[in-house]
Amino acid sequence: MSKIEDVKVLVETGKSKKVAAAVQEALDAGDKAQDILDAMIASMGVVGDKFSSGEIFVPEMLIAAKAMSKGVEVLKPVMAGDGSSSLGTCIMGTVAGDLHDIGKNLVVMMLESAGFDMVDLGVDVPAERFVEAAKENNNVVLIACSGLLTTTMPALKEAVQTIKAAIPEMKVIVGGAPVTQEYADEIGADGYAPDAGSSAAKAKEIIGA
């Protein structure tokens, strides 16, 4: 098995304590940092698909994302200044009145693993804060809004409409347990992902990556 294949397996199986060494070995063996990163992104795609299909559960996805992040730490100094791998910046938060962060954090991990530079605004984020963050950060290509509670669905609508009113060209993706494609369409979002596993593919599709 090639060194890159080792890294892929370790990310998919969430072996965070072993990934850093495997990435270093791949670099030492002459593999390009970009190729290693692409392999890890592909692994997280597999993990996301398995989660969406119910083959794996939240813990398996979490440890895979954790393993990927350990691998990326090794690659960062090697790739410093090389912005070619970034898909752009994504602003993400759970909407006002909603304190749930597990789903939001999972999506942050999956989008980061897919190549987005993530700005996590946390929970209970007022609609205007998404707009401010989009203006404060460089190369923002996507805003992701999460809402878990049925009671905070109106806040999701307000967030999307506030963002669209302030920055009409900004792409917005929404998600959360009570959210449906129909509701996403109704409130004017550009996309909807039913779960964290499919969020990265949808986000890339929306920005045309």
Binding site: V58, P59, E60, L62, I63, K66, I102, N105
Partner: peptide, 11 residues
């Protein structure tokens, strides 16, 4: 915390 707990159960 939720995420660390879920990871700990597997790790």
């Amino acid at each position: 915390g939720f995420e660390n707990a879920l990871c700990a159960m597997l790790e």
